[in-house]
């Protein structure tokens, strides 16, 4: 809000492949902050910030490819569509959010209850 940007993480990340210094700077600063935030919470507030990967590395690599490609093709991820987009009442964001929630829930259902048992 303060800098007038839509904080879509996938958009910020995707746009980081730019050669324009002006566009690159704020993106890298934002991404650095994103990594810094949990460190602040952990070290200054002394809170536990657990991260427990749920799947093996090969599955995560496949998932990463899908997330990277999908968010660029779909013009956004959870922060851009579900937070900023829904807040603005964007029809595209409502459609996108509904779609990725349905496929994510279906995927978890299949891996947890159909394959994983």
């Amino acid at each position: 809000m303060i800098t007038g940007r839509i904080a879509g993480i996938s958009g910020i990340l995707g746009g980081a492949f730019t050669t324009e210094a002006k566009e690159l700077g704020w993106r890298l600063a934002f991404l650095a902050g994103l990594v810094l935030g949990p460190l602040v919470v952990k070290n200054l507030a002394g809170a536990d910030v657990p991260i427990t990967p749920q799947f093996s590395v090969p599955v995560l690599v496949l998932a990463g490819l899908l997330v990277g490609f999908g968010t660029r093709l779909g013009n956004g991820c959870t922060s851009g569509h579900s937070l900023c987009g829904l807040a603005r009442g964007s029809a595209r964001s409502i459609g996108a959010t509904a779609t990725f929630f349905v496929t994510a829930i279906a995927t978890v259902f299949i891996t947890r209850h159909v394959i994983g048992g």
Binding site: L66, V67, G68, A104
Partner: peptide, 11 residues
């Protein structure tokens, strides 16, 4: 794109 992203998110 959103459908692909959702699958990756769930995986």
């Amino acid at each position: 794109g959103s459908a692909i992203f959702g699958i990756g998110w769930g995986l």
